[in-house]
Design a protein around this nucleic acid. Structure first.
Length: 595
RNA sequence: CGGGGCGUAGCGCAGUCCGGUAGCGCGCACGGUUCGGGACCGUGAGGUCGGAGGUUCAAGUCCUCUCGCCCCGACCA
């Protein structure tokens, strides 16, 4: 008990123990009194490895769908992560602030997002006791713009960046994957303000590098990819993708030249279909041929000589006729963006019937009452095979614009494996990734809407040019686990491990061992190390298995055996071999191991 | 919001088809024996079987409604 009090003295009351440990080291915890116990069995509700391990290792506990509480071990990791974010944001002149989670609806009305379809029900709305409309902040562009309007008057104050590490709530239709996709989460979000786009562009490069630094320091490998910025984005955006089979996004990359983009955004060389003199339309019987493959085979042409029709409907039930060359697929995000960002769903049978469309044999020729959006690929060939809008028949020699019109001809094609790279022509590869960060140029979208202006050097008032930079903390924690575990448990990178040293005492029945362990514990704390001290009266197997599960980088075992050798046993979590280290050499050994 | 699955002790599960005193393993508490890779013996605590109605002499089990959680899809500023 005496040792315990002494140990606690290295984390003085009324002081932020964690900050101390970052700066001076030496924070402590006894396993026997730690809040939250590890689980021996695998929770059935968890599907992904990071989810299973974060529950089993007592990092987090689920409170409701997509809503989690952090236990001491998980919270310590989260704070290590956010501290790294702070340091990197400060390094690019960021100033930390804190903005409210509860926000007045008025601000969201001002930006136009309160009633816009885009956030829609994901924005949780409620009234306070004064009957004011309020929302739970799902992001903070509105608040930060309102602040900037008050605080920034002159170009002399620019550029500047503010950031916060704050809770967000997004009422997602479906939470999943443990901490990967949640409804309530802590996010690092930053906002920069500039007098012009040149300044934004310059700063964008710095923040881009700062993001790479954060991920590197957290021990995760990311791909920075060009991303779709959605209808609220600006000219350019990058997502930072952690490669993972459980990722919800698809990345398209080129090993040859380094091209990398989200599949929603990726382009590729589409090639051209055969060209020839325009021939007259000819109707051919194609009984039962309702797929592109079947039609091409029956008519005797390659699939790229056919036209594929894909039907989507907007919320009002208006049918969108997406037309693309038969060998390509439609990219829903591009299609939606072409229509101004409307929400689309696959058309129902009833909607198609109402529009007079025959699925499987649909034709752009003579179609009415639908909006036709065509991919540019249909213009690079001639004499295509298309549906006849009549069951069992197709049309040969269909040509644009001779035989049909389209409201738009643009790029709505989905890049897939082996498509040629838009830069170098080499085959593209697709892989799955988790979006761990997103930076984008907002431009004057919010500053214009909310009249956040500054007086420029020429004496005129101009809207602030903004950039926005987001990074999820809990999601990053999950990503770190996804990339750092084995069959025994988590293997934390040193930079984010909840503790540096896991001290295992074997022989809690032996006073000599207990005494020696307490002394060693105190020495380690005095030496500036963060130590989790397993002082429980458990068997060796239990303690070792928990140590492997929790995944602290250095494990130190003290027992009767090691005391007799005037040594302790040291083992790295990342590795198999154990080493007897003399007490005098211990501190040096640990420092080297943690370096 | 569509499709599927599951709610029984802290965790993992059986029991539900075919109604008849609520069980098993782990964990937890106490005593003892062990003591370097999830020890053993004994004793014990802990469950309105997610909730509400209904059928029945009798409901964990059958019926209706409802709430929650998970998975696939839709969705994801």
């Amino acid at each position: 008990m005496l040792a315990r009090v002494t140990a606690a003295s290295s984390c003085p009351e009324g002081t932020d123990a964690y900050t101390l440990s970052i700066q001076a080291g030496g924070c402590c915890m006894r396993f026997s009194t730690m809040f939250g116990r590890t689980w021996r069995e695998i929770p059935s509700e968890a599907e992904t490895e990071s989810h299973r391990l974060s529950l089993r290792a007592a990092l987090v506990r689920q409170i409701a769908a997509g809503i989690y509480a952090y236990l001491p071990l998980g919270w310590r990791v989260l704070r290590k992560i956010t501290q790294i974010m702070r340091e990197e944001m400060d390094a690019v002149d960021g100033q930390e602030i804190s903005m409210p989670v509860v926000q007045p609806a008025e601000l969201w009305r001002a930006s136009g997002r309160y009633d816009a379809p885009a956030p829609g029900p994901a924005l949780l709305r409620f009234k306070d006791r004064g009957d004011h409309d309020m929302v739970l902040g799902m992001t903070h562009e509105e608040v930060v713009t309102a602040l900037a309007r008050q605080e920034i008057n002159s170009y002399r104050q620019l550029p500047l960046m503010v950031y916060q590490i704050q809770t967000k709530f997004r009422d997602e239709p479906r939470a999943r994957g443990g901490l990967i996709r949640v409804r309530e989460f802590v996010m690092k979000d930053g906002y920069s303000f500039h007098a012009d786009t040149n300044s934004l562009d310059t700063y964008f490069e710095r923040i881009h590098q700062a993001y790479l630094n954060v991920f590197a320091r957290c021990g995760v490998q990311v791909f920075a990819v060009e991303a779709d910025s959605g209808i609220f984005g600006g000219s350019q955006s990058y997502e930072f993708m952690v490669l993972s089979s459980i990722g919800e996004d698809t990345l398209v990359t080129c090993a040859a030249c380094g091209y990398a983009a989200n599949a929603e955004k990726a382009t590729f060389v589409k090639g051209e279909a055969a060209k020839g003199d325009l021939l007259p339309i000819e109707k051919v019987a194609t009984p039962g041929a309702s797929t592109i493959q079947a039609v091409a085979a029956m008519v005797g042409v390659p699939t790229r000589q056919t036209l594929k029709a894909v039907f989507m409907s907007d919320l009002e039930g208006q049918v969108i006729f997406a037309l693309i060359r038969g060998d390509l697929e439609v990219n829903m995000t591009k299609l939606s963006n072409a229509l101004g960002g409307v929400e689309l769903h696959a058309s129902t049978t009833d909607e198609l019937k109402a529009a007079g469309i025959v699925p499987g044999f649909a034709s752009p020729v003579g179609v009415q009452n639908v909006r036709v959006i065509a991919d540019e690929s249909i213009t690079t060939g001639t004499n295509f095979v298309a549906g006849a809008n009549e069951p069992g028949f197709h049309l040969k020699n269909v040509n644009y614009p001779r035989d049909f019109t389209a409201e738009q001809v643009t790029d709505i094609a989905l890049a897939q494996d082996d498509d040629p790279c838009p830069n170098c022509g080499q085959p593209l590869r697709t892989s799955r990734g988790i979006e761990a960060g997103h930076i984008f140029k907002l431009g004057t979208k919010y500053s214009s809407a909310m009249e956040a202006t500054f007086l420029d050097s020429d004496g005129t008032a101009k809207p602030l040019v903004m950039g926005c930079y987001g990074m999820g903390t809990g999601r990053l924690l999950a990503c770190i686990i996804e990339q750092n575990y084995d069959e025994r448990g988590i293997i934390w990178p040193t930079s984010v491990a909840p503790f540096q040293v896991h001290l295992v005492s074997l022989g809690t029945n032996n006073p000599q061992v207990v005494e020696a362990a307490e002394v060693l514990y105190q020495e380690l704390l005095d030496g500036g190390f963060d130590v989790l001290y397993d002082d429980r009266a458990e068997s060796a197997g239990v303690k070792f298995n928990d140590a492997d599960l929790i995944g602290i980088p250095v494990r130190i075992t003290i027992s009767k055996r090691t005391i007799e050798a005037n040594s302790v046993e040291c083992k790295l979590r990342r590795g198999e071999s154990v080493e007897l280290v003399e007490r005098a050499q211990l501190a040096g050994w640990i420092r080297q191991a943690l370096a």
